[in-house]
Design a protein around this nucleic acid. Structure first.
Ligand code: FES
Ligand code: FES
Lengths: 151, 151
DNA sequence: CATAATTCCTACTTATCCTATAGGAATAAA
DNA sequence: TTTATTCCTATAGGATAAGTAGGAATTATG
């Protein structure tokens, strides 16, 4: 399960993705997406430090995406908030760590299963981006490339 | 990430799956798989209560699988130990729960992505079983059906 | 310049979960 | 009766989750 932090981050970024060039105040986002204000503030600070959003202080300040929605993958947001997507450290590609308890990693069958699982889920999460979260209903113009390729 | 509990459970069950009809002492499993003894004991108690293993007390006691290895999926073990596999409660099939903060679930784009992710990962974890964890190296006789189908 | 709006920073809290560990009771085999 | 083993209850320290509070710094605007 994702943490609330990751979920709120995705919802807030999805909100921003609907008007990528407009700056929105945190309070407005919090209200629109039902996110506790102070909590969202902390989350957005983290996203700013990771260069996902760009913020501006003072009156008429606010936040907006630092890049185009389609260039921010859902997988990356989750990794920033919750850490690796893989189910075991030894199955993570972006943040691999050996398992203390497995003497022979190459022979570990559990690892193989978990690598397969991690590939399957990362396939989905790294292909989808904030652009996919932006619209309310799936419009033809918003379909992903792979769909267009078939036509 | 899986908890240590889930990981240990899978390793211990994988150990038992190598000789499904033999009873093994907990201490022996703990040593073989580098799992803290008392922790493993607690884990196995839970697995017994869920009818995954069958145990026997006293001298020459021990534990063994309650069913054939191929009838215990990895996904089920993870669900027992760590809860739902889905990344959001609203995307879980086995343990669905509505999201408090989303006013309109049907219009929620995040949910759609997470349902796709959950399908992708459950596809892997529910198809693989303890039988896949049983052997040290992938022998031809142990290949999964999908592989054989190609031949 | 004064004011209002807004993000930024530091610190704190409260509850829950994770990862175990300890000690002994119950059971069964030899 | 002894020994080996699981079963049960209780505990515990540390980390993480999910916020909350208060004020400092910055900026637009009149
Ligand atoms: S190497 Fe990670 S589970 Fe075996
Ligand atoms: S309904 Fe669950 S995230 Fe929107």
């Amino acid at each position: 399960m994702l943490s609330m932090k990751a979920k709120y981050a995705l919802k807030a970024l999805g909100y921003l993705a609907r008007k990528p060039d407009t700056r929105f105040g945190i309070e407005r986002i919090a209200e629109a997406e039902n996110i506790p204000y102070k909590f969202l503030e902390a989350i957005l600070t983290e996203l700013r430090k990771s260069n996902v959003i760009d913020s501006k202080r003072g009156a008429a300040g606010g936040v907006k995406l630092a890049r185009a929605p389609k260039d921010i993958s859902i997988g990356d947001v989750i990794r920033l908030m919750d850490g690796p997507i893989a189910l075991l450290p030894c199955a993570s590609i972006t943040r691999y760590r050996a398992c203390d308890d497995c003497p022979d990693e190459a022979a570990c069958r559990l690892r193989q299963v978990m690598i397969d699982a991690r590939l399957a889920i990362a396939d989905v999460l790294d292909e989808r981006t904030l652009a996919d979260l932006a619209s309310r209903s799936p419009l033809p113009s918003e379909r992903r490339l792979t769909d267009d390729d078939l036509g």
